[in-house]
Design a protein around this nucleic acid. Structure first.
Lengths: 157, 157
DNA sequence: GTTTCTGCAAAGGTTTTGCAACAAA
DNA sequence: TTTGTTGCAAAACCTTTGCAGAAAC
């Protein structure tokens, strides 16, 4: 594990590996470092490229196997950005309840949290006779600024 | 077109075909009939099986091509039920703003609409500087009844 | 007749898997 | 040592596509 990873991620990963009698390997360390080096969402293939730049020893097979472990441990979440590939989101450890707004002009993704939304989901779910577990909200929206200026305010996010 | 299809779907399909200079064929008719014969969600493969039972002339290639047309025309929507396949939802023509709750016990899908949720999404989106276009909400929740009785209230929905 | 559509079979892209060698604990 | 892990290459999936014959209009 490199020092650039937050303590929280290191701790949760360590706990998960121990609880499952799994081992720390060079390849897993590299993949985890690549996954959490930024807050950007990524596809499996993008993560592979990122990991290769750090250290080219991990194969695609290992990448997919490690992605599975990270999702299972709750460190990473699969998200649907409305594109044709599965994306992974490394930000749920820090912000467990966030949702996604996707700019239909420049495709940038804005994460947001909203207490009212969480409460409302909770009400709706209970009213239907269920106990809430998880939820995901995706909003697609256009940016006025993009149309006016040919660029989107959030583009450099 | 068979008489079991709602007039609204027939009309919208006809309009779409004409506007794009597309033709009505036996295969498309069968696939459309299968897709809208119930309000159930389906995968491409499930739809293929359904269509085959009506009339086995359509190939998988035609099925996928027709699915593309139906999505493009807005008659069908791709939805993410959190499973590993793409599902299609034939209910958006009648209920354009509905969302999905998925029972984590029996996997059944409950559709719901909520005005407050729509309003709230609108507020959040505008507050972030965007103009809302579409949104999708997926709630995963467990059913107390299922745990108590080994069955889920909504199971026969 | 002209244009669109179809089935077939092959190709594409992504993800998974069996296995023998390898590495962590 | 023991048990878990890896890379490789093949397989498994799902979806798309080129093409020549067939069907719609």
């Amino acid at each position: 594990m490199t020092s650039s990873l937050s303590q929280q991620i290191q701790d949760r990963l360590e706990e998960f590996l121990v609880s499952k009698s799994l081992r720390r390997t060079r390849q897993r360390d590299v993949i985890v470092e690549a996954a959490f080096s930024t807050t950007d969402h990524f596809t499996a293939d993008e993560l592979w490229e990122k990991a290769r730049k750090i250290d080219a020893t991990a194969s695609r097979a290992t990448l997919y196997r490690t992605l599975g472990l990270l999702v299972e441990s709750g460190l990473l979440k699969e998200i649907d950005l409305g594109r044709d590939q599965t994306y992974y989101d490394p930000n749920f450890v820090d912000h467990p309840h966030h949702n996604h707004l996707i700019c239909t002009d420049c495709q940038k993704v804005v994460e947001f949290e909203d207490t009212h939304m969480s409460l409302l989901e909770d009400c709706i779910t209970r009213r239907l006779g269920f106990r809430p577990e998880t939820s995901s909200v995706r909003i697609e929206a256009s940016c006025d600024e993009f149309r006016r200026m040919g660029d989107c305010q959030r583009r450099k996010k």
